[in-house]
Design a protein around this nucleic acid. Structure first.
Lengths: 212, 212
DNA sequence: GTCTATAACCTGATAGAC
DNA sequence: GTCTATCAGGTTATAGAC
């Protein structure tokens, strides 16, 4: 082994394993995904997998952070564009999330599942990702956009429920929807493209206080 | 063994097993619930459990139907009360569902999970429960309440997404919510009691076409 | 009907040869 | 680094005594 190859540790393969594990964990959840599954789809065998990530827990930890991050796109840049109207900014945020979920329809279920399986762990990861510094500018810009008075009478859980409830609904129920409503993936996408502006209107109404 | 006890098959115990299995499957899902778990919490051992329900699959089938049924309360009676206004009827339906979810906060996640794990199976069960005859009067009454013109321009997926998305959101995110927003169960219930009329307003607006 | 004992299997994880 | 071989533990499931 030459000096150049020393400590090579096959980064290419490692990346492939991580990508495979990420996909399978999101698809089937932690418990339903076995190390054999990951090894098989990554084109190696279990011992090789254990060589890279000693335990299943470590394997999961290696992919969980990035998954959570992919669920938390950089929104503060969008919300702070003060030259744009609030509805315009909301629309951009809905678009960003919609794009993430279209690329990864099982992500909402994965998050909700992990939220129940181990809420403590999810919170620890969120803290380690410094999610406060992610939320702070978001809430600050929102507070500014609403004005002090409305902000004080405002319910953050309502915004949370409306945002994720409405945005995740098509994806959480996609399996059922594809049987009940849609014949093709295109029909699903089509309905989604109508759904998005509806969600934006609901959010804008909620933030404007036009919901009484 | 007397004639009276013949074929007794301990219906009491069987009911207890079913109740236990139902609770555990809803709490932890199919894969994360073992036959040992069920036997332990039902106060028997594994072989006794296998005596009643030969396989884990059969055990699950025995409780899955009733679980799905509990997710489909009798709504046709409510929707057909033509002496009451549409908002009043919507409110009653939201109350019924809210009551179910409060009693069983993990039910939404369970359904969504099974929807992904085996959509075919869920559909077969829905058909065997004759869910069409359940939906038909619902849709009929809705069609009548909306009028023919609005009905034709109406999107059923939108109603579906709004209804389940908004109603299930507090329960799907309960684990997180209890850490982020609420200190006690009472605070969660309190916010939920504010959330319900909001959901009713959203549904009424959607059905009335006041959402453009 | 309910138990003990056990089979057959799968999972995560490690040892050790190459 | 990647393989074969193997282990310990847990899971579903059944056989057979009582």
């Amino acid at each position: 082994m030459s000096i150049m190859e020393e400590g090579k540790n096959n980064k290419g393969l490692e990346a492939k394993i991580i990508a495979t594990a990420q996909r399978l964990f999101i698809e089937k959840g932690f418990a339903e995904t076995s190390m054999s599954d990951i090894a098989l789809e990554a084109g190696i065998n279990r011992p090789a997998l254990h060589y890279y990530f000693r335990t299943k827990e470590r394997m999961f930890h290696a992919v969980f952070g990035p998954i959570v991050l992919s669920f938390l796109p950089r929104l503060s840049g969008i919300i702070q564009q003060k030259d744009k109207s609030l509805p315009e900014r909301i629309k951009e945020i809905v678009d960003v999330y919609s794009h993430i979920f279209v690329k990864n329809p099982n992500l909402p279920l994965f998050i909700v599942r992990e939220m129940q399986r181990d809420p403590e762990h999810l919170l620890r990861v969120l803290r380690s990702l410094q999610v406060e510094s992610y939320l702070q500018p978001l809430l600050g810009a929102l507070r500014e956009a609403l004005g002090e008075e409305r902000w004080n009478s405002f319910s953050l859980p309502f915004l949370f429920y409306t945002f994720y409830g409405l945005l995740a609904a098509p994806f959480l129920t996609k399996g059922m929807g594809m049987q009940m409503f849609f014949k093709t993936e295109d029909e699903f996408r089509d309905k989604l493209s109508q759904w998005k502006p509806y969600v934006v209107r609901q959010l804008v109404a909620l933030l404007s206080g036009n919901d009484q």
